[in-house]
Design a protein around this nucleic acid. Sequence first.
DNA 1: CGAGGGTATGCGCATCCGGCATAACGGCAA
DNA 2: TTGCCGTTATGCCGGATGCGCATACCCTCG
Lengths: 306, 306
Amino acid sequence: MPDAHTLGGMMERIRALLTVIEEGSVNRAAVRLRITQPALSRQMQALENELGGKLLERESSGVKPTGLGHALVKSMRPLVGSYDAALAELRRQARGERSELRVGYLFSAAQSMLTPALAKLRKSQPEVKLKLHDMSPREQLDGLRAGELDLALIGQEGVTAASEFHSTKLCSLHVCVAVADDDPIAAQKNIALKELKGRDFIGVDEDQVPGRNRWATALCKSAGFKPRFAVVVDGISNVLSQVVSESAVTLLPGYFEKLQHPGVTFVPVSDEKARWDFIVLWQKGRASAATRALVDALKQVAVTLR
Amino acid sequence: MPDAHTLGGMMERIRALLTVIEEGSVNRAAVRLRITQPALSRQMQALENELGGKLLERESSGVKPTGLGHALVKSMRPLVGSYDAALAELRRQARGERSELRVGYLFSAAQSMLTPALAKLRKSQPEVKLKLHDMSPREQLDGLRAGELDLALIGQEGVTAASEFHSTKLCSLHVCVAVADDDPIAAQKNIALKELKGRDFIGVDEDQVPGRNRWATALCKSAGFKPRFAVVVDGISNVLSQVVSESAVTLLPGYFEKLQHPGVTFVPVSDEKARWDFIVLWQKGRASAATRALVDALKQVAVTLR
DNA sequence: CGAGGGTATGCGCATCCGGCATAACGGCAA
DNA sequence: TTGCCGTTATGCCGGATGCGCATACCCTCG
């Protein structure tokens, strides 16, 4: 029940009217609401003025709803109930008690880290309701911005957006270059970035993997050349096919070495600066216990994977 | 949009927050809401205090929702929409513009009057959405009291409840007595009430047809005797069967003469006092145009049926 | 550095709204 | 019939709330 000093809006007056109709008496309802009868009487009048019609028939034995009063009860009672439930849930969430955790991630990048972290979370917070969404980095960022995700596991693409959310770097992977099996580079144990000067690069659509091309460009620039993107494809899964068919190269985070792709060889880059960061982003404001627990679990798993 | 002096409750602050998040700026939202930026800033703070958590991250370029702010938008936006729609509909109804009309009636009693009245209504108010409910007198009264009906066509049973609603008497029917075909009374053109002294009467369950037995009792008392109810049945449709099987009698409104029932004859009662009133009840408070139109139409039809 | 955009906060004033006291009405019992 | 009790409505007053104005502080950009 709101205290006397928050009874200022229509919703509060509507709530009071529901009580009056239930009691059939302004006086008894006032006792229930812990205000005086005259104050409540005036609230009822104010509500009638605001709606433009009588809601109550006044009699010496109490009050009875008019047709309009009945209609208000019918339409507003469920609404008030939903509103109260929503407020209660928001207050719970504000206290960090949100039990739902919506996680966005890219499977190929995150599964080796996410799976053990979720196991830890399941142990420490068994009541958490997880919603896992396999999505591209772009979708992850959009989901966070729209408030549809609580947390995202994202790579280098998330670095530019990190200031919009809370963020923590989990680990930094080395970089490898993908080449066709019959490429001379495929026989090397590793490669320096400058050896890629003059080669055709395959880029990724900015819309799907924001910042990937800029990252590759920055690395090559630090090695003294500017990469030429012969083709820009619309998804990571198409990059490796184009590497083969175009006799081109592309820079990828080291986790790709674990993926088998016919006709493609991954060669580690030896440059110290060639790193790919893996970070976790979560919403600003107070984080729920579930969110904090998952972030902690991810940090622990990241340490073991180094 | 409420004016500046009614922004007192949480709902109004929530509404303001939706605007702030939409604009991404307290300042621009304040312009939209036609209040000053400091007032709106304080409302946001008050709302955060009431919910117990930050809803907005403040930056020099404006504001961004926190996770809690996103959650509020998601849960409250539809609620605010429903609330506004409900208020708008209530205001329309208050102005007499309700386009729905829920009518309760007992078919056998009311159809001869209701059908022509509805034809008149259809002509004068073609946009009215009618909801017709064939129900017992008890159900009609309960429906009115619960605000589920706007108007009820009811007989003598509604007379005692008339003070709870607006009411108009439409007509007064003569009374007849129902007897078995082989009863000596069946051969009479009419009958005086006092001739029924000593006969078994069939009564009707008070719960289904409130006041029917009391009405019959009062009529017989005015003729100098008290009726003995041999059987009390649970519905009007069972009365006539019992009249035959029990060689009993019952008093009924004159409209029953139009109904064919095997083995039963209806004989008019000659006593002047033997009348059965037919009335229309509708909700207190301002009646919609549709309700008034139907009441008028019923009055006109009642005149022609006399 | 200054200008312009943003949000937060002190202060004063107007309005709102509650409590207290009282008026008016209807119903019921003696 | 009168008096009592229950009801709702309304006048008056004071405290609470919330707004506008002025100002402080921060950030970004030319």
